[in-house]
């Protein structure tokens, strides 16, 4: 990693890159943004289609409890991954199980779990640390570029690689099962299995991106780029690639701004992402002048 940091430092000194890239944490942030941005953009298209936006928020909220459980398990404060992945996956699978076994609406189940996970997280955090450490809570909620270390980057890269491959291999199946379960079954697919698989992939990528974006704002990056892309896309190919583009621009520009301004990276990413969404909204009449979904884009 030192080689990469030095390379960026040399480029920054030579004037090819902004001077903030003299700092290793900015290079780590940029690499993380380049890994997570495209992936969240692509995953977001299925999240929006399956109407799982607030499911994502629940996973983010569960992160607070996950961090506390990680600390209880004796994990270091800057790397509570067993607690995070373990608890968030349990919450995600539990919600999917309840949805498939009851007739409760998706938003009802999310409503029940959403508040519980955040409340439980705050209680556990105070009990574990014996004090209310606002900086620690702030880091989880809004993301912190400074605390991102090499291990986080490795976890992020490995998670993104596994999720990216499985997501791409199953994208058509996820979309078809979202469209109509009976039709998917007629094609030999198992919509229930696909739902569990997607939830696991989504949770994995959400947890991996928490340090950069924060649990409160991860929803923004997974939903807003896809929503903006949906507004101006004529077909699925365009939908996915535009969402990837919006998400990548949001993370990279947000990161650069957070390196200059004294604000959390997640908050700036959220604002940039929203600006792109409103741009798409205002450009929509121009881009889809022939009527939405006419021809290929």
């Amino acid at each position: 990693m030192e080689y990469i940091y030095n390379l960026f430092k040399d480029w920054a000194n030579a004037g090819y890159l902004p001077s903030i890239f003299e700092h290793a944490f900015m290079v780590r942030g940029l690499l993380a943004a380049l890994i997570i941005g495209p992936l969240l953009g692509a995953v977001g298209t299925v999240v929006v289609t399956k109407k799982l936006s607030f499911f994502t928020q629940t996973i983010g909220n569960a992160a607070m409890s996950g961090v506390a459980i990680g600390l209880l398990l004796g994990e270091p404060a800057d790397g509570t991954y067993a607690g995070l992945y373990g608890f968030c996956l349990i919450v995600a699978l539990l919600m999917t199980f309840v949805k498939n076994r009851t007739h409760l609406a998706n938003d009802t189940i999310i409503g029940v779990v959403l508040a519980q996970t955040l409340g439980l997280g705050i209680i556990l955090m105070i009990l574990v640390t014996s004090q209310f450490n606002i900086h620690q809570v702030e880091g989880i909620l809004f993301g912190s570029l400074i605390t991102l270390n090499d291990n986080d980057l490795i976890v992020l890269a490995v998670s993104a690689l596994v999720v990216g491959i499985l997501f791409a291999c199953n994208f058509n199946r996820f979309m078809l099962a979202s469209f109509n379960k009976t039709l998917a079954k007629a094609r030999g697919l198992s919509p229930v299995f696909l739902e569990y698989l997607f939830v696991v992939l989504m949770t994995t990528v959400v947890v991996a991106s928490l340090k950069l974006i924060g649990s409160l704002l991860v929803l923004v990056l997974i939903v807003v780029p896809a929503a903006g892309a949906q507004l101006i896309s004529a077909n699925l190919r365009c939908f996915v690639w535009l969402s990837v583009l919006f998400s990548t621009i949001s993370t990279v520009v947000g990161l650069l701004l957070s390196g200059i301004l004294p604000v959390p990276s997640g908050a700036v990413i959220a604002v940039v992402s929203s600006l792109l969404f409103y741009s798409a909204l205002f450009l929509r009449p121009l881009l889809l002048r022939g009527g939405p979904n006419q021809g290929e884009v």
């Binding site: 692509a42 791409a168 291999c169 994208f171 058509n172 979309m175 078809l176 469209f179 094609r187 077909n235 699925l236 190919r237 996915v240 690639w241």
Partner: peptide
């Protein structure tokens, strides 16, 4: 086109 592609091919539509 997308709708039929999803059902006929394993390669992601994008």
């Amino acid at each position: 086109f997308d709708f039929l592609f999803l059902m006929l091919k394993k390669v992601p539509v994008f």
